[in-house]
Computed example of a mutant assay.
Amino acid sequence: MRTFENLAELAACVGQDVAATEWVQITQQQINQFAEATGDPQWIHIDVERAKQGPFGVPIAHGFLTLSLLSQFFDKTIDVRSKRMGVNYGLNKVRFMAPVPVGSRLRAHLHLHSATPIEGNGLQLQWNVTVEREGSDKPVCAAESLVRIYA
């Protein structure tokens, strides 16, 4: 966990790789629950037997499941002690460059691209996030994530 006392201390990290997260394992149970919650039961995600015959040889995680991990990655990696709250403001760009086979371990690298003051004693942060899969040279996801933090 990287801890900052206040927003100014975090803003001083613009242009830097601020943190790398711990590894998170992707399970079939997570994939099934995500499919149910989102109404996306495509066979390449949830049908283990059919997926063995598919292009990846095993079920793969939904791209949006991988993307949804960003909240967890930020929550477990970056803390600003003086913050009142933080909100997800959106995404500028997202790419899913490689599949995430069931059983994969993922982690994210968080690069602070910009920090812009906003009304209400806050900052809008643009994070360039790269999610990697253990044992792979190619990232599985890259995203420009916008987060607003208020002190």
Results as ranks from 00 to 15, higher is better:
residue 22 E to D: 11
residue 23 W to K: 11
residue 23 W to Q: 13
residue 23 W to Y: 09
residue 23 W to N: 13
residue 23 W to H: 13
residue 24 V to I: 00
residue 24 V to P: 00
residue 24 V to G: 00
residue 24 V to W: 00
residue 25 Q to G: 10
residue 26 I to T: 13
residue 26 I to F: 08
residue 27 T to I: 12
residue 27 T to K: 09
residue 27 T to M: 11
residue 28 Q to C: 12
residue 28 Q to I: 14
residue 28 Q to S: 14
residue 29 Q to R: 11
residue 30 Q to K: 14
residue 30 Q to A: 12
residue 30 Q to F: 06
residue 30 Q to D: 10
residue 31 I to D: 13
residue 31 I to N: 13
residue 31 I to K: 14
residue 31 I to S: 14
residue 31 I to H: 07
residue 32 N to H: 05
residue 32 N to Q: 12
residue 32 N to V: 13
residue 32 N to W: 02
residue 33 Q to L: 13
residue 34 F to K: 00
residue 34 F to P: 13
residue 34 F to G: 15
residue 35 A to I: 01
residue 35 A to F: 02
residue 35 A to G: 01
residue 37 A to S: 08
residue 37 A to I: 00
residue 37 A to Y: 00
residue 37 A to G: 01
residue 38 T to S: 14
residue 38 T to V: 15
residue 40 D to S: 03
residue 40 D to W: 00
residue 41 P to L: 11
residue 42 Q to W: 04
residue 43 W to Y: 13
residue 44 I to W: 05
residue 44 I to Q: 14
residue 45 H to M: 03
residue 45 H to K: 09
residue 45 H to A: 08
residue 46 I to F: 05
residue 46 I to R: 08
residue 47 D to L: 01
residue 47 D to A: 05
residue 48 V to R: 12
residue 48 V to M: 06
residue 48 V to S: 07
residue 50 R to D: 12
residue 50 R to G: 00
residue 51 A to L: 10
residue 51 A to W: 07
residue 51 A to C: 11
residue 52 K to F: 06
residue 52 K to Y: 08
residue 52 K to N: 13
residue 53 Q to V: 15
residue 53 Q to K: 14
residue 54 G to R: 07
residue 54 G to Y: 06
residue 54 G to L: 10
residue 55 P to A: 14
residue 56 F to I: 10
residue 57 G to F: 06
residue 57 G to T: 02
residue 58 V to L: 04
residue 58 V to G: 00
residue 59 P to A: 02
residue 60 I to V: 14
residue 60 I to P: 01
residue 61 A to M: 01
residue 61 A to F: 01
residue 61 A to N: 10
residue 62 H to R: 13
residue 62 H to Y: 02
residue 62 H to F: 02
residue 64 F to Y: 09
residue 66 T to F: 04
residue 66 T to Y: 03
residue 67 L to G: 09
residue 67 L to W: 00
residue 67 L to S: 08
residue 69 L to G: 11
residue 69 L to R: 02
residue 69 L to F: 08
residue 69 L to N: 05
residue 69 L to Q: 06
residue 70 L to C: 02
residue 70 L to F: 03
residue 71 S to N: 05
residue 72 Q to P: 06
residue 73 F to G: 11
residue 73 F to E: 06
residue 73 F to P: 15
residue 74 F to K: 13
residue 74 F to D: 03
residue 75 D to A: 08
residue 75 D to T: 13
residue 75 D to L: 06
residue 76 K to V: 05
residue 77 T to G: 03
residue 77 T to D: 02
residue 78 I to R: 02
residue 79 D to Y: 04
residue 80 V to F: 04
residue 80 V to N: 10
residue 80 V to Q: 03
residue 80 V to E: 07
residue 82 S to L: 03
residue 83 K to S: 12
residue 83 K to M: 04
residue 84 R to G: 12
residue 84 R to V: 14
residue 85 M to C: 10
residue 85 M to N: 13
residue 86 G to W: 01
residue 86 G to L: 05
residue 86 G to F: 01
residue 86 G to T: 07
residue 87 V to Q: 03
residue 87 V to R: 01
residue 87 V to M: 02
residue 87 V to S: 01
residue 88 N to I: 02
residue 88 N to C: 04
residue 88 N to L: 01
residue 89 Y to D: 09
residue 89 Y to S: 14
residue 90 G to Q: 08
residue 90 G to K: 07
residue 91 L to Y: 04
residue 92 N to G: 08
residue 92 N to A: 09
residue 92 N to Y: 11
residue 93 K to C: 12
residue 93 K to I: 09
residue 93 K to T: 12
residue 95 R to F: 04
residue 95 R to S: 12
residue 95 R to D: 12
residue 96 F to D: 06
residue 96 F to C: 14
residue 96 F to E: 04
